[in-house]
Every structure is written in structure tokens, then in C-alpha cells.
Amino acid sequence: MGSVRTNRYSIVSSEEDGMKLATMAVANGFGNGKSKVHTRQQCRSRFVKKDGHCNVQFINVGEKGQRYLADIFTTCVDIRWRWMLVIFCLAFVLSWLFFGCVFWLIALLHGDLDTDYKDDDDKSKVSKACVSEVNSFTAAFLFSIETQTTIGYGFRCVTDECPIAVFMVVFQSIVGCIIDAFIIGAVMAKMAKPKKRNETLVFSHNAVIAMRDGKLCLMWRVGNLRKSHLVEAHVRAQLLKSRITSEGEYIPLDQIDINVGFDSGIDRIFLVSPITIVHEIDEDSPLYDLSKQDIDNADFEIVVILEGMVEATAMTTQCRSSYLANEILWGHRYEPVLFEEKHYYKVDYSRFHKTYEVPNTPLCSARDLAEKKYILSNANSFCYENEVALTSKEEEEDSENGVPESTSTDSPPGIDLHNQASVPLEPRPLRRESEIGSRR
């Protein structure tokens, strides 16, 4: 089982795998120059863009038009607004034209077009017409509009002379109601789609790998820009990579689940303020055997998904993003964004995407760390350097704002901070800030 798991979770494809794949392509008759073999020097295209759209195009789909027309309502909801407006206008105009032609044909076959009612006051002739005051196609078209929109100006009306005319008036009224219901329903469904809710759900630009509770963890940050909550919010993550099976089958995008606390339930989050999602790199993680150097040379993509129900409509929305291997910062942490004021908490989104480097973060893999092949620094050293990194950030910001350097908390000259780390230190809580992250 261990060997199978290692093969499945191998992220960085070796040169031997690339040569094996190329040999397979030639042997199977696919070596026509169009096949692409992804190596370390040639990274694959992003499968999920940063804005959440999937970078996929469908080609050679059989009976595409028929399949889309069979699900016309979903098609109308998914198309762009400009095409929705075109369909909206065409549906009414074509129905008016169709029934206008029908009423014109009825008048033509009944002989109503030969009668001039402007110079004739004989009401008996008017009563013999199928539709009064309809003696041309324009008049028939206007009567069709008046019937379907129930305008009723009063000059044109159907008589009991022709039952077919009466039937067409009733039929057009029913068709008009159906068109109204369909168009209004599609427009309302399109307006109520929770897709735009994703514009106020954000992911951090970069993911980070750092120590948390004595273990290497992959972390990324999510935030909600609205005050309205995302009900039943939960997160998922998958690692996408290519691999070759033991039988020699090439899988271009193998999807591997990344555990973010599904078993323990901590994948469900209360997204009021930005939260750091934590994936513990343990023996079940696809990143277990990867060191910093392996991450730098790897070719994979981590897709992160945030799902929840919109509070206003109770409709489920899904926000997506992805991180390539070069977008994962090893040995970094996110800057705090949640600050405790006197009577409330304040979230500073200008710090949302910012990170700071944490010294002495192990550069080895989580496996080597678990097997004690890498000796961690003293816990006080880690905490102290973590505090120094934050303090230096604040000093830089104070210097930019014009604060005198004498007010900063610099260490005395001639003292090495790293050498001082081995000395037991008193706890130094942050002056006014605390970061709330997901705790395992």
C-alpha cells in the first residue's frame, strides 16, 4: 500500500517518465508532432483561472445545437444578457408577425380586404367582416399587437362572423401568456443567479507553507467582502497533476483530494472575517514527500473551492481559484488583518494578500521532518523571529508614515537576534492585533 500511495502522490514527473511517455506515443502511432509532453521546463496551462473560470474549450460535440435547444431554459439562463435581450425582442416580434399574417390571411380569404370602410357607412358590411377595420397587412399586424398586449384601442375587434378568427384570438392570448411567463422566468432566474456573489468572495493571491502546531501546513486565505453571511460555508481543495499509471496509461489531469478537515468538520467555516484555511501535510497528503526545492521545480495546480448558500436567496454559490506551484510561498505567513478595537473588531483588507517571511522554516519535506531528519529550532526562537518579522513590518510602515526611528523597538546594537533566540524570552503579545485562523 505504501508503494502504491507514493506512486499515486508523486508530484514532480521525472525525466524517465517523460521519455517513457514519448516512447509510448511513438510506439502507439501518436508521434505526429502534435502531442505535447509536459516536462519541468514546460509548465501546463492553468486549468482553473484565478477568477474561477475553467480554462476549457469543448470541440467536436455531436448534436450540440439539439442538446442546447432541448434544455432551452438553461440555455437562456446561461447566455449573455445581450443575447437574452435579442431573444426577448424576437420572441414578441415574431409572435406578433405570425398572428398578424394569420389574421391577414383570414381577412384575405373572407374577402374583407376588398371592402373600403372609410367611404361605406353600411354597418351590415362591417358585421360581415371577420375582424372589423382590418383591410391590410398593417392593420392585421396592429390588431395582433393589440390582442397579445391587451391594449385594446377599440377600432379593431373580432366579430362572430368567422369562428376561426375567434379561435385565433383565444389562441394568441394563451401563447402570449406562455411567452411572458417564459421570458420573465428566465430573466428573473438569470438575475437571481448567485454567480455575481463570487465577486465579493476573495482568495489570497498566494498560498503559503509554514509551520503550525509543530507541523508543516499548506495555507491559503479566504474572505467575504459583504456583511451578509454565506450560510453553510465549506471549503474543498484538489491537486491536479499528470501521472502515468503502473500499466503505462497517461492521465493528463489526475485529481487528488486535499484534506482540509472534512473528517473532523473544520472544513465548515464561519466566514465573517478572513480565515486562513489549513491543510496539514501528513502522510496522507500529496505534498508529504515534497521539499522546498521540489515545490520550486514541480508542475501541478491546486484548485480551491468555497461553497455556501447566499443568505438573501438561499441559492448555492461556488467560488473557485487555483494556485500553481510557483504561487506557493515556502516559509511565509499571512499578515494579520483582524484588529481588536474598543467595542468592535476591524478588518483591514489592505493586508489581505500580504505575507511575511518566517525565518528558520524547515526546507525539507514533511516526511523528513516526521522522521527527525531535520532538527527544528527552539520553539522560543521560532516565536521570537516570528515577532521580529512582524515588528520589522510595523517599523517599515512607521518610517513610511514619517514616525521617528527613535520610537521604534530596535534591538541594541551589536546583538545578533538569531543568537539571542536560544535565550528564554518573556511572551510578547501583539500590541493591538490578533489573527483569527482556522485551528486544527
Rank of each mutant, 00 (worst) to 15 (best):
S434Y: 10
N297M: 09
V222W: 02
L97N: 02
H332P: 00
V37F: 05
S321R: 09
L253W: 12
A140T: 01
Y334K: 00
A27K: 10
I328K: 00
I145N: 01
S406C: 12
V272Y: 10
A389W: 06
E199Y: 10
R333E: 12
E394F: 04
V272H: 08
L338R: 01
N360G: 11
Y117L: 00
F143S: 01
A325P: 07
T159E: 02
I275P: 04
A237P: 01
K193T: 08
S321P: 00
A181C: 15
K196W: 08
E146A: 04
A70N: 08
K196S: 10
L201F: 03
K36F: 09
C89K: 05
R197M: 11
R46A: 02
K20V: 04
Y374L: 10
I209M: 07
C43Y: 08
L239Q: 02
C130Q: 03
L225A: 12
N198E: 14
P359F: 03
C217H: 08
F88G: 13
C43A: 13
K125I: 15
F99N: 00
S246Q: 11
W81I: 13
E394H: 10
N419Y: 10
H205L: 03
I295V: 07
E63R: 15
D51P: 04
T150G: 14
A298T: 09
G18C: 04
S285N: 00
A233L: 06
L306F: 11
P359V: 09
V4N: 11
T149R: 08
G100I: 01
F58H: 11
E395V: 11
N7R: 14
A181W: 15
E387P: 02
R82G: 09
G248Y: 03
S408Q: 13
T115L: 05
R40I: 11
Y68W: 14
D122C: 00
I305F: 11
R226P: 10
W96D: 00
L430N: 09
S228Y: 14
A165K: 02
A379H: 10
C101K: 02
G65Q: 09
I328F: 01
D348V: 01
V202I: 06
D294S: 07
V272T: 09
R197T: 12
L142F: 02
D116E: 13
R40Y: 10
Q172S: 02
E307Y: 07
E16P: 06
V166P: 02
V169G: 01
R82L: 08
V235M: 05
E405H: 06
G414C: 05
E435I: 05
N224Q: 14
V388I: 14
N224P: 11
V337I: 11
F143G: 00
V260S: 00
H110F: 01
L108A: 11
K393Q: 15
A207G: 14
I183Y: 10
D267Q: 12
T159P: 04
K227I: 10
A139P: 03
Y334E: 00
V303A: 09
V170E: 01
V26Q: 13
K346S: 08
E395P: 11
H353F: 06
D282H: 06
I179R: 03
L113Y: 03
A207K: 01
R226W: 07
L216K: 01
K125G: 15
I328S: 00
K34T: 13
N55H: 04
T361H: 13
I251M: 12
H53V: 08
V175C: 06
M211T: 11
G31C: 07
L230T: 09
S434L: 11
N7I: 04
Y68K: 11
N224L: 11
R8N: 10
V187C: 06
T407A: 05
A298L: 11
Y349P: 13
C217M: 09
S95W: 04
G154A: 03
Q57S: 12
V158C: 01
G402Q: 13
E232L: 12
S13K: 05
H332C: 10
E395Q: 10
K215S: 03
K193R: 04
L338N: 03
Q420E: 15
A165C: 02
Y384D: 09
C89E: 02
D71S: 14
R40Q: 10
I281Y: 00
D119P: 00
C162E: 01
E371S: 04
G185W: 03
P252E: 15
Q42F: 06
A210E: 11
S411Y: 03
A325H: 11
C157M: 13
F30H: 15
G265A: 12
C89R: 01
Q255K: 04
Q238T: 11
L108G: 11
E426T: 13
F143N: 01
L363P: 15
Q420D: 14
T75V: 05
L90N: 15
Q57F: 06
K354W: 05
Y344S: 09
Y288K: 00
K241N: 10
C364S: 06
V235K: 00
E161R: 05
R197N: 13
A314D: 03
V12T: 15
S14E: 10
Q255R: 08
E433A: 12
F141S: 04
F98T: 12
K36Q: 14
S350L: 09
R44G: 14
N378A: 08
Q42K: 07
L369G: 00
V175F: 07
L108T: 14
A186G: 15
K196Y: 07
E357T: 05
G31R: 04
C54G: 14
L390S: 15
Y374T: 14
E249H: 12
T74A: 14
V208P: 00
H353Q: 06
S127I: 15
S322G: 04
F141M: 10
R40S: 14
R236T: 10
C130V: 01
S204P: 08
I151Y: 05
V48H: 03
E232P: 13
L218H: 01
G248Q: 14
E357L: 07
T276L: 11
V231P: 04
Y345A: 07
K190Q: 09
L417D: 13
A25I: 04
L253T: 14
D348M: 01
L363Q: 11
K292D: 00
I179L: 10
K241F: 10
R44P: 09
S45L: 06
L376T: 14
C130G: 03
I269D: 04
V303S: 04
L417S: 11
D180L: 14
E146P: 02
Q293M: 12
A298D: 04
D289Y: 03
T355D: 03
D299F: 05
H343E: 15
L201H: 07
M191G: 05
S408W: 07
I328C: 03
F98C: 14
D263S: 10
S411A: 14
L376A: 11
S350D: 11
L97V: 04
P412M: 11
L21S: 13
E371F: 03
F155N: 13
F103P: 00
T39C: 08
F352K: 01
R80C: 03
Q41G: 12
K193M: 06
G261P: 02
V358Q: 12
R80A: 04
Q238H: 09
D122N: 03
K372C: 11
S434R: 15
M84W: 15
N55E: 14
S3W: 02
M188R: 08
D121Y: 14
S381R: 04
D213M: 13
P413H: 07
I295S: 00
K193A: 08
Q42Y: 08
P404A: 08
E247T: 07
I305Q: 12
K196V: 14
A312S: 08
S242I: 08
I145V: 07
R428P: 13
E433D: 09
F98G: 04
F141D: 00
Q41R: 07
A298N: 07
E63C: 15
D71V: 06
D213F: 08
N32M: 07
Y345C: 06
I305P: 00
V56S: 14
M188I: 06
S321Q: 15
D213I: 01
Q318S: 11
M19W: 03
I281H: 00
G414H: 11
L430S: 13
T23K: 06
S45E: 13
A107L: 05
L105W: 06
M211K: 08
V158R: 03
I106E: 06
P274L: 03
F182P: 02
L287A: 00
W96A: 09
F143R: 01
V12F: 02
R432V: 15
D122V: 03
E63M: 07
S406H: 11
N386I: 03
W104H: 08
Y153H: 07
C54S: 13
S291I: 00
S273Y: 10
V347E: 06
G223W: 05
P274C: 11
S365F: 01
G214Y: 03
R351A: 15
K50R: 11
F103R: 00
F262W: 11
V388W: 10
D284V: 12
V388K: 08
G402R: 08
S408E: 14
D114C: 02
G214L: 09
G402F: 10
E63F: 07
K372G: 15
S408N: 05
D121V: 09
T159H: 03
L230K: 04
V231T: 10
I183A: 13
